[in-house]
Nucleic acid binder design. Structure first.
Lengths: 347, 347
DNA sequence: TTGTAAGCGTTATCAT
DNA sequence: ATGATAACGCTTACAA
């Protein structure tokens, strides 16, 4: 481009495959093979090449490699947020699985917005990722068609849908909350409060709320509108919504929270208001964040092994990219951890 | 490769630049220009090309583009952890700055290990990132030479070193703790406890501890070995180290913690032990995590605007990559937030 | 086992 | 303003 005439076929200007080949006195093909398929090269040449590579400090040009192989060994993942819930653990799990197989994780955040999610995924595909990972199974309405058209392998995380096996890996959010609610009903609770996570662009949160409603309906029960609050991911909101809910008599005897911080907020506010937990009020959450066990009254919650989700997703998506058969369990367990914050209904 | 003979010069097989050009009846150069420098193409052709692109749903092949331009528009950042401290906020700041300029953020975690950090950076460079970002200014001993040899622009985050202007952006960790310690000394405290963050591969933590020691030395004071503990990032460790420290009489009257979770642990344990804060004991931390203000006794701490660090780093590294002049303030403020957990020394 | 050379899908130079 | 074509640095089919 700059010196088109100075580039004689085979001549080596920059430190690249050609130069290595020239100095080692072999062809570029041999160098390439020595790097990628050492067993196909005679020990002698292999060593000679390795030595030259070391000496020159040559770093293979990944972009050129990607262009030639049509693979980038890169997988993109879009998360609603990096710090919420246990996404951090999942990212760790993904990375550990990827680094084993020499894949790189490309991360993006969409802030619970399907447009942003779609945008980030388009960027990923333009950048040439081999596959994309997303949270949840509900997305921008054009996404499915886009992924199909571009032939991009993909996987949904944090959801389990028995109807569509293989499309997602995660817990059954609905079932988990059915079980938690039944457990509380079993303790005699009849009036429930819910501090749910905002359900906009969050099908997991929606499924959990539906699980609560369905379990209550089994007993002819429902959450009163004034005992239902929507919040984000903060202790502060948990406090505020708790306060609003207990303001409306008859108070619920049990409050289920959509995530760990909301639950911590509810717990701290109950303390501040002198509402005894669990004697007068049971509190349960979702996600097992450390503070839940360190407060004076540990909080009953549901734990999903976030890192294990990441590892399974990692293995599965690599298998998808490489066209291998792989047996993965798609459903991840959501375990109820019963702690001191829940107990028999008062009276 | 598969059908080498079937590829006649200019013929278009897959949906690519060639096909778009062929259908639009222009050259590939014109299509490329229409996409990247629309102003250099006549409005008529520009529209014709755009229409064909839309119709075919062509997605430019980023890898090929990167090979031709020698730029990937990708910047890699290695963090010790994604969830510790306020790294999440910094990542947000980076992303917001990058997305404005069409850069993509490649993220990796090194788990407070210089070998892993070096490894991840090598991977980044192989994959063709335009620049790399790291946390701290101490790294693997070969890293500097590697970055110089490969000509990779780079920047350290979360540190400020007046000696080496332009190499890093962040707070002056040492100075911040000198100030915090002086403030406590000013309250009459003379016996100090320290629950420090592990200082292995963490020069920020080390600088902070040194700041404490230096400020104490100004008054002829020092931390007794039995009042010094090293921990990670958990409430649990904070509790344990607090317990160990107050076990050794004479108890310190003030304890400084290396991060938010350690401080929360110290606070919860002091409550559990019935040690009144701040009357009998002052507690201060680093990082302003939400729980610190929501506990019954809010915790005095130091806040660094993490997202602002990310934004500044983002702007600066893009300027470095694009060879622009750019005026950035390299030092970020570390603000002491005085809350109820610190007060005059007892007696 | 090793070499030759086409090809990956763009960009950019140079000529028109 | 547009077009023809070399070049980007590798991999790989095919030939030897």
């Amino acid at each position: 481009m700059k010196h088109p005439k100075s580039r004689i076929a085979g001549a080596a200007q920059t430190v690249g495959l050609r130069k290595v080949a020239a100095i080692a006195g072999v062809s570029t093909a041999t160098v390439s093979r020595a790097m990628n398929n050492p067993e196909r090269v005679s020990p002698e040449l292999r060593e000679r090449v390795a030595s030259v590579v070391r000496h020159l400090g040559w770093i293979p040009h990944g972009t050129a490699r990607a262009l030639a192989t049509r693979r980038t060994n890169t997988i993109g993942a879009v998360f609603p947020a990096f710090t919420h819930g246990d996404f951090g653990g999942t990212i760790d799990g993904l990375q550990s699985e990827f680094s084993k197989r020499d894949y790189t994780l490309l991360l993006a955040r969409c802030d619970y917005d399907y447009n942003q999610e779609f945008h980030q995924i388009r960027k990923f595909v333009e950048r040439g990722v081999d596959a994309v990972l997303m949270v949840g199974e509900e997305h921008h309405h054009e996404l499915a068609e886009f992924l199909a058209r571009t032939g991009t392998p993909h996987l949904n995380m944090y959801v389990y849908n028995a109807q569509k096996p293989g499309t997602s890996i995660g817990p059954d959010n609905h079932k988990a909350l059915v079980r938690l609610t039944r457990y509380l009903i079993g303790l005699g609770h009849r009036r429930f409060g819910v501090i749910a996570q905002n359900t906009t662009a969050n099908d997991r949160a929606r499924a959990r709320v539906q699980g609560i409603r369905d379990a209550l309906a089994e007993h002819g029960l429902a959450v009163r509108p004034e005992h239902f609050g929507l919040g984000g991911n903060s202790i502060h909101e948990g406090r505020e919504l708790f306060r609003r809910i207990v303001d409306h008599a008859p108070q619920p005897t049990a409050i289920i929270c959509g995530n760990g911080y909301l639950a911590v907020g509810a717990m701290l506010e109950s303390q501040a208001q002198g509402i005894r937990v669990p004697d007068a009020m049971s509190i349960a959450g979702w996600d097992d964040i450390e503070i839940m066990t360190e407060l004076p009254i540990p909080i009953t919650t549901i734990r999903v092994q976030a890192e294990e989700v990441g590892r399974r997703v990692g293995r599965r998506i690599i298998a998808l990219v490489e066209g291998q058969q792989e047996v993965t369990e798609f459903e991840c367990q959501a375990e109820i951890l019963v702690r001191a914050s829940t107990g028999p209904a008062p009276g």
